[in-house]
Design a protein around this nucleic acid. Structure first.
Lengths: 113, 113
DNA sequence: CAGAATCCACGGTGATACTG
DNA sequence: CAGTATCACCGTGGATTCTG
């Protein structure tokens, strides 16, 4: 087994209610505006979207590009560094799709109590 | 890009302050007693260890074996299902070790403010 | 040894209103 | 359009005490 204990580095980056969904959409579309993200992620508030985007930016996962126009236009895209997260997300996603059924059953059983 | 949005399935399983460390140690050692886990994870309280272990058990990630002796002896190990998480953890860990430096820098800069 | 039971603090998140 | 500012809630986690 080659596991050390650095897994939390990624986990921390992705911990936050909407973080993985945000990354997912940016990975899919390449570049997205603030309002597009908001539309693509039903239920998220501007505040949380802003917060998470700022965190990604601070971690250099995404780039933020502002167009000095009226009305404002801001585009978000993966940084080169952030692109290295893609294989990670794919791996996580593979597992999720493969085991979605099992976890669903668990949830139901937990609700039943 | 083959990413859907099921990544959160894994993320949810691993979200919890000590979860990945617990899994890490069980993966490394194969089987561990409650007290051994507690010793291997400095800072964790019995409560959190119990809580997280119970969650893993409910999700069928680990198995719990109780030896009816005095004093009690309980052993935790990966279930077959849980073993499928190993490649995931390895992937997360790979990334963590590769990018630990970058994230460290970010943390320092954030502290500096 | 391996927990269970309380009580409590804190931070992440949500709702809402306002702004350049 | 793309945010900021405030307030309020609630669940996660910590400290402590008790038990079979």
């Amino acid at each position: 087994m080659e596991i050390s204990c650095k897994a939390n580095e990624v986990l921390e980056l992705l911990s936050g209610k909407w973080k993985h969904i945000i990354l997912y959409h940016i990975m899919e579309h390449g570049t997205l505006r603030f309002s597009e993200l908001q539309r693509l992620i039903p239920g998220i508030t501007k505040k949380m979207l802003t917060t998470h985007l700022r965190e990604f930016e601070a971690n250099q996962i995404i780039k933020r590009k502002v167009y000095p126009s009226v009305p404002p236009k801001v585009e978000y895209s993966l940084s080169e560094y952030g692109r290295e997260l893609i294989p990670i997300m794919e791996k996580l996603d593979d597992w999720g799709r493969k085991h979605a059924g099992v976890q669903e059953e668990n949830k139901k059983r937990n609700q039943a109590r």
